[in-house]
Design a protein around this nucleic acid. Structure first.
Lengths: 191, 191
DNA sequence: AGGCCGTGTGTCACATACTGACATTACGAA
DNA sequence: TTCGTAATGTCAGTATGTGACACACGGCCT
């Protein structure tokens, strides 16, 4: 009964999120997820490499979107501003499915195994930023440093966003970058 | 043959690192590690909760050391400077067992599962910093933001350090913080 | 229409990570 | 010596993840 395969994958994603929320990640088995989607365990593992990845298909799309956004930023823009602009361009897509993001976060925040994977995805985002910065001529050191730091700031903004139901992700991102600049220049080495 | 328990734990840690390096993480089984340490699988799992944690006993000591260092920094010091000082106080301990750190990094960098765990440990370090900053009166937002960002910078410094055999971790930490301040103030909002 | 082919799926068998329950051994204190 | 405790061993079981092979559906070509 293979019509497209994408449908089964979709059912698996939705079902997994439901089950993880209903009875918790540890109390959910792959067999449960597969059953709810009307497929076999083996089919689950053909769509996702492990039990965690089923929650993170969004991230790969985000990663691609970020790479595209970074490529489109004027090369004349200073590095930090370029990253900020790229991050802000992700805001609409995020706001669009906020409910899903909140649901996902509820599970992830109480499940160490999922938190680990989330950190890995954040690191992947950082790698994308680092690549872009390298292509803009920054040194290996500077590109990686800026990428890691800005990605951490983005992560913090997103975390705050999902925790506070009347907050705007765009504002939070800008706020994070602003505060960052303020702290750095006022407390360490004003230059 | 329970002499102290700590000895077995030690043998497990050393043996695991050896095996992970010799044949790779995926090609190593818990049974292998236990056998090399002269114990049973079950004993391994009494000392470590899973296959990854055996490489990260250093991190918990670092975490404690960082918490202590943060508590000792003069409360008059501005936040970023306080964090920097605490980070620098970890330098000697790091330099002391550099060879071990390099060996560990070799395995971790080529093993996604271990990289994930490493990110988790970095996040734990970030949580310690955030706690300290909250106690210094920073808002939840600022404390977390600064903690995440500075920890990312520290992580970058350490990464560079293990990759370059004639580098000094203390210098790299200072360099990271300096560059951070420079970038932030010169490219975003000079204040 | 009929036959071919590729992709998604089911089935089976298996290695390995982890866990709970209970028995056993070493070592130190009384 | 005896007793108690902490570390270990043993056993049985569940769950994750993987390889090999067979089957089914749908499109394509002639």
């Amino acid at each position: 009964m293979p019509r497209s395969g994408a449908e089964a994958r979709d059912r698996l994603e939705r079902g997994a999120l439901e089950l993880y929320i209903e009875r918790g990640y540890d109390q959910t088995t792959i067999a449960d997820i597969a059953a709810r989607a009307g497929v076999t365990q083996r089919t689950y593992f053909r769509h996702f490499p492990d039990k965690r990845e089923v929650l993170f298909s969004v991230e790969s799309r985000q990663q691609q979107a970020l790479a595209d956004a970074l490529a489109e930023v004027a090369s004349s823009a200073p590095p930090l501003a370029a990253v900020l602009q790229a991050f802000r361009s992700m805001a609409p897509a995020l706001e669009d499915n906020r409910p899903l993001a909140v649901a996902r976060h509820r599970v992830i925040s109480v499940t160490p195994a999922l938190r680990e994977r989330e950190l890995m995805k954040e690191a992947a985002l950082g790698a994308v930023v680092a690549d872009a910065l390298r292509q803009r001529g920054l040194s290996e050191w500077s590109a990686t440093l800026l990428a890691q730091v800005t990605t951490a700031a983005l992560g913090h903004a997103i975390h705050t966003w999902v925790a506070d139901r009347n907050s705007d992700i765009n504002d939070l991102i800008v706020q994070a970058f602003t505060d960052l600049g303020e702290f750095a220049s006022s407390h360490l080495g004003p230059r």
